[in-house]
Design a protein around this nucleic acid. Structure first.
Length: 225
DNA sequence: TACGGGATTGGCT
DNA sequence: GCCAATCCCGTAA
């Protein structure tokens, strides 16, 4: 199955935003917000130290209410639950879930409170605290692998379900947009999403073309009878 | 209560 | 490229 890539241009905007200005910006549709977050840096300060990751790949997930057509690939497709509650909350907060019995994946919530919209942080480059990230990710063979993949990124930043619902825009976290937004970016089908949600009808994966931390495209595992 | 599958990763062939 | 690991969540009964 061919991967459909397309290149878009993004608008220019200025840097230096307060948490509340950032929250306002994130309060839009995740599909519009995702490209703006390419190149942004998410930080986490813990007692171990600080790790910061420059985001190079994202996926948008929508809720049952505000999207034009429902998103069958989203955890919120069938409505609110205890797990996905943060996705219905205010923008700028984290939604972290546990999967495959061993991995955590982190989203930044988008859209106004009451709607479910979020961006999954799929990959990035560790730009601060590389040593600590390597300690947290002992199986990583090169700096490029430290946060190349959603569960790897969450591990490098030490994000777990305990952080789900917390505000990513204030201490101990922090988000900084690039001084200038990505001039170009690519988009295509989301990775590992089974059913219609993973089809070309939902080209809601966004990445920085040519960045070597971007994960390889992989279709969802096909269910066999 | 029970069951099926998962927004993945890393090791092995 | 293939597949095991490992357990939580959502759905059905």
């Amino acid at each position: 199955m061919a991967v459909i890539n397309s290149v878009h241009s993004g608008p220019e905007h200025s840097p230096e935003r307060s948490p509340e200005q950032l929250r306002e910006l994130l309060s839009g549709d995740a599909r519009k917000v995702a490209p703006l977050l390419l190149g942004s840096v998410l930080s986490h300060n813990s007692h171990e130290g600080t790790v910061s990751v420059r985001i190079t790949e994202l996926e948008a997930y929508m809720g049952p209410g505000d999207s034009l057509h429902p998103d069958p690939g989203s955890h919120t497709f069938r409505g609110p639950t205890a797990r996905n509650a943060p996705m219905f909350g205010p923008a700028g907060h984290l939604y972290v879930y546990f999967t495959y019995g061993m991995h955590y994946c982190a989203n930044i919530v988008c859209g106004p409170a009451g709607t479910a919209s979020a961006v999954l942080l799929r990959a990035g480059e560790v730009v601060e605290g590389r040593h600590l990230a390597q300690v947290r990710r002992p199986t990583s063979k090169s700096p490029r692998d430290l946060a190349s993949g959603p569960a790897r990124l969450a591990t490098a930043l030490a994000l777990t379900t305990a952080d789900s619902g917390r505000d990513a825009l204030v201490e101990p976290f922090g988000l900084r947009l690039p001084s200038a937004p990505a001039r170009t970016y690519s988009s295509g089908p989301r990775v590992g999403v089974s059913g219609d949600g993973g089809s070309a009808d939902y080209p809601w994966r966004f990445w920085l073309p040519g960045d070597d931390t971007v994960s390889r495209y992989k279709a969802a595992k096909v269910r066999r009878p």
